[in-house]
Design a protein around this nucleic acid. Structure first.
Length: 345
DNA sequence: TCTGGGGTCCTTCGACAA
DNA sequence: TCTGTTGTCGAAGGACCC
């Protein structure tokens, strides 16, 4: 059996450990409510005002003027997260960490519900953080189950009961169904996971063509054979981007900012001992339209100046095609190869 | 006066090679 | 030589996730 573990309101919970006077108050971890930030995590008290992750902080402030806004401290959250996963690893044969605050674990033989409760209690006791777990035969059911009884609950889906457990839930609860897919299916009268599971081949091909649709319907039926993978996957890309407080239109200033981002990306490459073949710049205009421009270079590089030159060229090209002020600029590299493969090029 | 940052994966399209 | 097919790569965009 597999369990999905999700730490409850993780960033906000860590902040409350640091500042106990915040306990019970509406706490929002995220950007500046007077700027362009969004909510990363809202405490349960803040959620009562309708504040949710990904909402703009300005909107959150409007909903709850008494909310306490705290800027995120990722280094601290990484430390707390590591402590949680150390505890979990000591109790499970395989653990796959998916983000700082969630992951899958294989449960040891025996009573799965008891094992899941033991993990929850150990995390509460040793790290003093609350988490919720879902237990099932597969990842998709376990993940959805972990959300069924928050905070602090353990929900078990009995083997064979996966499809029945999923069927009545809103489509949006299925991982992989975002706002677009939800809207498209809703327009065709598909409202629940069970509706998607029961879709005939023809309708599925029309509504969600391609492998994505096939896979989503399989998951909706509770069919998911992805294993719990303990070893972390190789990085595919490294990026950095910044939304400006005020839109920037001066091309020279944008080039300079791109150069700084290239340096950050190059440093991350060197830290990981990787070289990149493709450089991509991302531009978001004042109207939120986003374009990317990419170029693959002959010799893979980890050199800041080389990445900056390519990024500047791409930036000029994009601005020539569509001049205008930018609210965001980003630089990313992909096509990563390890040092020893460099000789191949 | 909205709408972050760091990612992954998929799809589509055009170019090109076999 | 011409045409069509298939596969691969790079570029661009889109959807999604935490």
């Amino acid at each position: 059996m597999i369990a999905h573990l999700d730490i409850d309101a993780f960033f906000a919970a860590v902040e409350m450990h640091r500042r106990p006077e915040l306990r019970g108050r509406p706490v929002v971890v995220g950007g500046d409510p007077r700027g362009r930030g969004v909510v990363a995590t809202a405490s349960y008290a803040a959620r009562r005002f309708g504040i949710r992750s990904a909402m703009s902080c300005a909107e959150a402030l409007r909903r709850c003027p008494a909310a306490v806004f705290v800027p995120p401290d990722m280094a601290r959250y990484r430390e707390w997260s590591a402590r949680v996963w150390d505890v979990v690893r000591a109790m499970a044969p395989a653990v796959e960490v998916v983000g700082l605050d969630e992951g899958y674990l294989e449960l040891p033989p025996g009573d799965p519900a008891a094992a899941a409760r033991a993990v929850r209690d150990a995390v509460a006791c040793e790290v003093r953080l609350s988490c919720s777990l879902g237990v099932a035969t597969c990842k998709v059911a376990a993940k959805i189950a972990s959300d069924a009884d928050k905070p602090g609950g353990v929900t078990v889906v009995p083997p064979g009961g996966e499809a029945a457990f999923l069927a009545p839930l809103p489509l949006r609860a299925l991982p992989g169904v975002g706002p677009r897919t939800d809207a498209r299916l809703a327009a065709a009268g598909i409202a629940t996971i069970g509706d998607l599971a029961g879709l005939a081949d023809g309708d599925l091909g029309r509504l969600l063509p391609g492998r994505v649709g096939e896979e989503l319907r399989r998951r909706a039926r509770g069919l998911d054979d992805r294993p719990v993978r303990s070893e972390p996957a190789e990085r595919v890309s490294i990026s950095t981007e910044r939304t400006f407080d005020r839109d920037v239109s001066d091309p020279a200033r944008l080039r300079a900012l791109g150069g700084e981002m290239a340096a950050r990306v190059a440093e991350a490459l060197r830290r990981r001992g990787r070289f990149a073949r493709t450089v991509t710049v991302k531009l978001r205009y004042a109207d939120f339209r986003t374009v990317t421009r990419a170029e693959t270079i002959r010799v893979p590089t980890d050199d800041a100046a080389a990445i900056a030159r390519t990024a500047a060229r791409l930036l000029c090209r994009a601005l020539a095609e569509r001049p205008g002020a930018l609210r965001l600029l980003g630089v990313s590299v992909s096509g990563l190869v390890p040092e020893r493969q460099l000789a191949l090029f």
